[in-house]
Structures are given as structure tokens and as C-alpha cells.
């Protein structure tokens, strides 16, 4: 599945300062759809190069990291249970940096 992932608010520093990643994510074995839960695990393994604890806590993002799926707050779409579709845009923004 092709997705565009964007990291902002300082999170880009955890993935070699690249803000926008066009990626191709495989569906988990035996699953017919990709959830945010799956995507986070994938991001952690494949994109985060340092200090993963700044991005994740448990199986979700660290509190203070905002997530938008197609410019919509993931708190409205079920957070980890949000189902992703082809060409979706997922944005992660840290609120914890700077100020």
C-alpha cells in the first residue's frame, strides 16, 4: 500500500531529518487491511533511526505526538484502529519541541 508519511515538529530529527517519506507498506500477514497500529510498528522498524522512545510509548505514539490521517485528527477516526487506504497521507507532529 502506498502511503505518504510526514514528520514534523522535530520528529523528523528521528528519521535523518527527512520530513516527507513516500513509502510502500505491505499488509500484515493474513490481514486484509492496514491499521494505524500496524503502520506505527512498521514506522518504528523502518523509519525511526534514533531514540524511538521519543516517538512511541507502548504500541501507540508517545503522548504529545499529534497524528493526522488525511488532515484529520486521528482521535476522530479511532486512533490505533484507524484503517488506512491507498495513497493516504499520515502526518505526525510533535508538540514537545521548542516553543
Amino acid at each position: 500500500m502506498h502511503l505518504t508519511l510526514e514528520f514534523g515538529g522535530g520528529l523528523e530529527l528521528l528519521c535523518e531529518s527527512v520530513k516527507i517519506h513516500n513509502v510502500n507498506v505491505d499488509l500484515p500477514k493474513g490481514a486484509d487491511k492496514l491499521s494505524m497500529r500496524d503502520l506505527l510498528a512498521w514506522v518504528r522498524t523502518n523509519l525511526i533511526k534514533e531514540r524511538p522512545e521519543m516517538f512511541m510509548k507502548g504500541e501507540s505514539v508517545r503522548p504529545g505526538v499529534l497524528v493526522l490521517v488525511n488532515d484529520c485528527d486521528w482521535e476522530l477516526s479511532g486512533q490505533l484502529d484507524t484503517t488506512l487506504e491507498e495513497k493516504d497521507l499520515v502526518v505526525f507532529i510533535s508538540t514537545l519541541h521548542g516553543g
Binding site: G8, L68, G98
Partner: peptide, 20 residues
């Protein structure tokens, strides 16, 4: 709320700096 400030900046595409 900090969340709303960041959302506002994001939606409005405001130009800000966020390096530690």
C-alpha cells in the same frame, strides 16, 4: 491547549522552527 496551537499552526501552514 498546546495541541490546538500545533493544530492551528499546521492547518494554517504557519512557518515555525522546531529544533531542540
Amino acid at each position: 491547549y498546546e495541541k490546538e496551537i500545533v493544530m492551528y499552526a499546521y492547518f494554517k501552514k504557519l512557518d515555525y522552527f522546531s529544533t531542540e
